[in-house]
Design a protein around this nucleic acid. Structure first.
Lengths: 355, 355
DNA sequence: ATTAGCACTCAAAAGAGGTGAGTGCTAACA
DNA sequence: TGTTAGCACTCACCTCTTTTGAGTGCTAAT
């Protein structure tokens, strides 16, 4: 059995209807609301075919039909219409741009808030992946007798810093000297590229106070392990799920919220790719229900996009919601917000590029 | 009618029973489980008295009784026994100490996690209130052509930093000069004490490039407004509420989780005091149901303690949960964890004290 | 003053129709 | 041959009723 134009139209109607109603869709309903020029009986027959083909499912015999993951996939790939952003959407996203937040975490927090408010789903953002950026500057600043601040800046202009305790008391002069040594030895490398050999080399070059290397190494390890760092994942609108009937069951709501609490898992869940325009810039990845690896996500969909600093995709943003998601709207909003993110980040950091 | 020993025993039994069962407590139940040497009929009479006096409430005529806020208050003030921390409690808390986290946010995140896991309630921590600490050092470090890092350290050793964009390009030498000027003018003041006059004074002392003052002022404003900063409140165990039958209703669960999402409100909610040992160090504050100002908290209880750096109470930690809370256990665990926090913070920062 | 006993209350669980949206199938029709 | 009207059938869900049982208040006896 093949998928004629008519079946496509009916499938599209069922998905569209189900996305707004959240109720199994019946043939009569489609016949009345969508002017397909067909009687309910014909639609009934076609829907039976669509069920056989795996695009629709029936919760029980006397209920209407619900799209399957395969049905949503077909809808997303071939059937859905482009959504035109509303004036309000455009305005809200634009005003986010105008806040001119020049702190990365604030920028992300704010963008996530905007995305979750516009879509009514849970927005997920990852912070720029720091470890793949080449080191431009490394700076050590004494804070007090027992601690100093390590500051790292990449070529892309992203900065990270951490206060570390000094293993023993050293003079500010020594710290400056050490700082210069690090800068000389590590500039141009990415964090990931720093090898044991490199560390040995630095150690050789130092005459004394090797201990001061340990907190620096700790910091580097910290950055490499950032998958496990809670601060690397930003969520907004976690309670939005309560707006959807699929989560009116307390068990499901709990499951979802506990999932969201587990940042490393979330990070993993959104880092895979499933792109329509594979590899291209501004590609959107959509994972529907069972297409997700994780069991807890088998009944959820995730839409993500990359955001860029220069040519490098440094982080992800997107939404998590029920498979019954308004894919068309969500995609457009994510596209627009990621475009703005790129623009803002370019303005903030681009001037550092390539030097 | 006054509150005899017998009434107290019965009230205590009802509260104890209700804390574990979450079901309205009947007279027969008490007569059987608690060896008070009284028949259910007698207990029934006493419970009727306790209801008249406002310590107990009846959901409906044919149900058992439930403690009122006043009942819990009496229990907390006079009736409850000291809970002895279990070996596991002590071990878990101790192992938290042994992690030697020397980054404040990590320390707090971890302590919150421990508290929420031990109590099974939602743990709330506030970051140390920075604006009341006297400035010890202020440092400006150039990051790249268009930005610099402002680093502030208080007498207590707490540090904050922020990357700010330079309004116009300035030389590193100028930044150093400006840095020294700020240090000279602002040392010893608390953030709150920095006045417009002071700013004018700094401006007078500068010959050029006044614009560089603006990002510094932004930073200071940021710190003063920290009530509104999401990062200043740490939560852990937000999904713990799903363990309690009072939140098996989706509406209530939602209400609670939306409340927790609103950090400024949470901060306000825990910052009031209601202490048993007013003003004394290590005092525990307990707010039961209606004793809370906020409507959303009228059916919840909050237990908090202060934590200290030196002599100053810099932040709060505690739990939020249903009024049917195991007060005795929660109090002990909070006490122990705050004691550890104090110890760790003393070791980390105390050496800065007073210089 | 305490308690056994009993009538009474009422939420919650269990059962019993009834309703209606929706289906699949058949036979008639264009 | 594809489409549709018609009809019997299914089944979740709603409502109404009944049953159950934990718990109470009151009274009379100890």
């Amino acid at each position: 059995m093949d998928m004629g134009e008519r079946k496509k139209k009916i499938l599209s109607s069922v998905v569209t209807e189900y996305i707004v109603s959240a109720e199994p869709v019946g043939s009569r309903n489609i016949a009345n609301k969508y002017n397909l020029g067909l009687s309910s009986a014909t639609i009934r027959n076609e829907m039976a075919d669509l069920e056989d083909m795996g695009y629709l499912e029936q919760p029980h015999t006397s209920a209407g039909r619900v799209p399957s993951d395969k049905g949503y996939r077909m809808y997303v790939n071939e059937l859905m219409n482009d959504y035109e952003l509303s004036v309000r959407d455009i305005k809200v996203i634009k005003s986010m741009m105008e806040l001119r937040l020049n702190q990365l975490d604030k920028l992300i927090t704010n963008a996530a808030k905007v995305l979750s408010e516009l879509t009514n789903y849970t927005a997920v953002f990852t912070a720029p992946e720091f470890k793949k950026g080449a080191i431009k500057t490394i700076e050590l600043v004494p804070i007090d007798e027992s601690s100093m601040l390590i500051i790292l800046v990449t070529n892309e202009g992203i900065m990270k810093n951490k206060r570390v305790m000094l293993p023993k008391s050293v003079t500010p002069e020594f710290i400056t000297k050490f700082s210069n040594l690090l800068k000389e030895k590590l500039s141009g490398l990415t964090i990931e590229e720093i090898s044991v050999g490199k560390i040995q080399e630095i150690k050789q070059a130092m005459q004394t106070n090797f201990e001061i290397l340990f907190p620096v190494l700790d910091f580097i390890t910290d950055i490499i392990d950032d998958v496990n760092k809670e601060t690397e994942v930003y969520l907004s609108g976690t309670t939005n799920i309560f707006n959807y009937p699929e989560y009116s069951d307390i068990g499901r709501a709990r499951e979802f919220l506990e999932l969201l609490d587990n940042k490393p898992v979330i990070k993993k869940a959104i880092s895979g790719n499933n792109e329509r325009r594979q590899g291209k810039k501004n590609a959107i990845s959509i994972k529907i229900g069972g297409e997700n690896e994780l069991d807890a996500l088998k009944n959820k969909s995730i839409i993500t996009a990359d955001y860029y600093i220069g040519e490098r995709a440094v982080g992800k943003l997107g939404v998590i919601g029920p498979t019954r998601m308004d894919y068309a709207k969500a995609v457009k909003r994510i596209e627009r917000i990621s475009a703005y993110m790129n623009k803002i980040l370019a303005e903030l950091y681009q001037n550092n590029k390539g030097d």
